[in-house]
Design a protein around this nucleic acid. Structure first.
Length: 410
DNA sequence: CGTCTTTGACCAGCGC
DNA sequence: GCGCTGGTCAAAGACG
């Protein structure tokens, strides 16, 4: 463990050396603005299609956010003062419990499948369906405003949404722009997916590669504020790789579901902007029941929960459990700081706060499509690695808000 | 002994 | 073509 830390640290130092010169300046400036911006952002409106569910606790509070549009920006994520989403902020009472994340996830199963109860149902929220589905999840475990958090000024500044429908690098209501970005992402993902799934023997790989292009599995990311990198989501994962992420001091870990025949993968990386944020990106769909005896306390799950979610099966969708319990058990008033920022982001095509579901849902876990988040990161912006892949630059740069963008779709 | 992690090597895609 | 980067493989080691 120590060894690893040392290595990571070393790695961090190296990468920081590479990027600090350009980053620090901006970050310092940004830092002073972060809080203010956040508030500003929170109150702004957006045209992005996304939804977020946020929970929080000292250490393992989860901030769950769904983003259906890569075009989202901070404003889009946190701006939903008018949204009636009552579960913006949840208190995870299992603080310091590594399984809290698991709780969050597994509860999703129940959540997704349940239509009764007062709990919020994601099914009620539909996200626009672009050709590409971006399943963006944002789990943030809010902490105190990270005074040490680094923020990227350039991106935030440029994109700070001060007005409704304002667009910036990545945000926007601009459909054309979105389409373009999304397409680019999609193509890339497809290639990658193909690459990933066609790895067998090397000769085999090459052969397959030429013959078939496999679309990448739907992906979505959880952004979680946690000290723990590998959050226990109830499934068993085997780590099969770790790579340094460009422009990030933190390595990205690759995990694969250990269940035979299940090709679900997940990547875990820590945000370089806010080390307290862990982004877990899931790819694929579990083809097996929710494990009964994982390391977590899944064993305590009731059958109804187990009956849903993970075993869902839509070829093109990724089933993610939905945090019902969060809504019913650990729900607590959110602090004013996040008040405006924690809420479901809806498709602003409808200004009344209602979601619009233009198409079939491929993201069955939430019952609606996750439009592809745009990655319209300007070429000049710095590389955020997977984060960049998944999250819009605006969000990414925010210290409190983390972002993830989900791309996928075949 | 089985499972999992670590880690260097390899491969493919992409931009220049 | 070359270098960079992301993603994966697989051998070796650690762990319970």
């Amino acid at each position: 463990m120590e060894k690893k830390k040392e290595e990571d640290h070393h790695h961090q130092e190296q990468q920081q050396k590479e990027t600090n010169s350009s980053k620090n300046t901006d970050k310092k400036i940004e830092h002073h603005q972060s809080e203010q911006q956040q508030q500003q952002i929170s109150s702004s409106s957006s045209s992005s299609h996304m939804a977020n569910l946020v929970t929080s606790s000292d250490h393992h509070h989860h901030q769950l956010e769904l983003a259906g549009n890569s075009n989202m920006n901070l404003s889009s994520i946190f701006d939903t003062p008018s949204l009636p989403f009552p579960y913006s902020y949840f208190e995870d009472q299992s603080s310091n419990n590594p399984n809290s994340f698991l709780d969050l996830l597994r509860q999703d199963h129940q959540f997704a499948s349940s239509s009764n109860s007062s709990s919020f149902s994601f099914d009620a929220f539909s996200l626009p369906n672009n050709n590409n589905n971006n399943n963006l999840f944002f789990t943030d475990l809010p902490l105190t405003q990270p005074s040490t958090t680094k923020a990227e000024s350039s991106e935030v500044v440029n994109t700070a949404p001060t007005s409704p429908n304002s667009t910036s690098v990545s945000s926007s209501s601009n459909e054309a722009a979105n389409d373009n970005t999304n397409k680019e992402v999609t193509v890339k993902d497809q290639d990658q997916g193909q690459q990933q799934e066609q790895k067998g023997t090397k000769p085999q790989l090459k052969a397959k590669k030429k013959n078939q292009k496999k679309a990448r599995e739907a992906r979505f990311a959880f952004l979680t504020k946690s000290d723990i990198d590998n959050l226990d989501d109830g499934y068993r994962w085997r780590k099969y790789g770790q790579k340094a992420v460009k422009n990030s001091p933190y390595p990205r870990s690759y995990y694969r579901c250990t269940t035979v025949g299940c090709g679900v993968k997940k990547r875990v990386e820590r945000s370089s902007d806010d080390p307290s944020i862990v982004m877990t990106t899931y790819e694929g769909q579990h083809s097996h029941p929710f494990p009964m005896t994982p390391r977590g306390h899944i064993g305590m799950l009731t059958s109804p929960i187990l009956d849903h979610g993970a075993t869902t099966t839509s070829s093109s969708s990724f089933s993610i459990p939905q945090p019902r319990y969060l809504l019913t058990q650990h729900h607590q008033p959110y602090n004013s700081m996040y008040n405006n920022s924690l809420s479901m982001i809806n498709n602003r095509s409808s200004s009344d706060g209602s979601f619009v579901n233009p198409g079939s849902s491929s993201f069955t876990g939430f019952g609606y499509d996750m439009p592809q988040a745009s990655t319209s990161t300007p070429p000049s912006t710095r590389d955020h690695g997977l984060l960049q892949d998944i999250l819009p630059s605006q969000i990414r740069s925010d210290t409190i808000n983390i972002q993830t963008k989900e791309e996928d779709k075949k």
